[in-house]
């Protein structure tokens, strides 16, 4: 493995009394795509929400363990806002801000940071929209509301929004689950390119998608990390019988 970007040590999480993650430890290599798979309710979403401190926004949420980004513990040595700027997130359901134009959606994060330089913002908008393949579809009218786009376009807009702040890690929570197949294909090919800039951690309920887009795969089951390794190995020669059952589609 090359250098590790993000290290998770002994991470457990709760909602009130209910434990949803049980002492998970793993290391995410830099500039790779890592897929998180597992049946629904296995703690996938909670797991990645612990990685950018979104978990703590939910009432009754509690976390124990360490998450280390480039040698710094995100819970004790960094501020939540800083963490979330460095670790971007794309959600299950596309969530462009309905009160903002396409343009303002892309630069929302930069504007929060106080960047007002018009030329710079223009440049970011164009380059990020090109990167997600949306530029040609929307460049005629960037003042339109982001909510007017189709579902697939909205999701790519949200990816552009997350990329605009140049995050070092990008978390994606089933980004294609609400999209049609052709939009899904576009986002999948986008994911394979994104690893040139950032470590991409993507949750998917679709094992085929994990096989298609990821370099590494982690399999979670009932809050436990069952197996983690190169995607090829996980799919071709899983060590754990549970993993084998899951990737071959024999339980779900």
């Amino acid at each position: 493995m090359s250098s590790n970007k993000l290290k998770v040590e002994d991470l457990s999480a709760w909602f009130y009394e209910k434990q949803v993650l049980n002492r998970v430890s793993l290391e995410f290599p830099d500039k790779k795509v890592i897929a998180i798979i597992g049946p629904s309710g296995c703690g996938k979403t909670t797991f990645i929400r612990c990685l950018n401190r979104m978990h703590e926004l939910t009432p009754g949420a509690r976390v124990r363990g360490r998450v280390v980004l480039d040698g710094k513990d995100i819970y004790t040595e960094m501020d939540a806002m800083e963490v979330r700027r460095k670790i971007g997130m794309v959600f299950q359901k596309p969530n462009p801000f309905p009160n903002m134009s396409i343009y303002d959606n892309v630069v929302a994060g930069l504007k929060l940071m106080g960047i007002r330089d018009k030329a710079l913002l223009d440049k970011v908008v164009e380059s990020k929209l090109r990167e997600v393949g949306l530029w040609d579809e929307v460049s005629d009218d960037l003042r339109r509301s982001g909510a007017q786009l189709s579902g697939g376009q909205q999701q790519r807009l949200c990816i552009a929004r997350a990329l605009a702040t140049e995050p070092e890690v990008l978390l994606m929570d089933e980004p294609t689950s609400s999209l049609d197949p052709s939009s899904t294909a576009k986002i999948e090919s986008l994911v394979r390119v994104l690893k040139n800039h950032a470590t991409v951690i993507i949750i998917t309920h679709n094992v085929q998608q994990a096989a298609r887009v990821s370099d590494y795969t982690a399999f979670l089951y009932l809050g436990d990390l069952i197996e983690f390794g190169e995607t090829k190995k996980i799919f071709e020669s899983p060590k754990n019988p549970l993993t084998e059952k899951y990737v071959t589609g024999r339980f779900g």
């Binding site: 501020d79 806002m81 800083e82 929060l112 940071m113 106080g114």
Partner: peptide
């Protein structure tokens, strides 16, 4: 960043 946190 400080300004933002102060406002908050």
């Amino acid at each position: 960043m400080n300004m933002r946190r102060t406002k908050d």
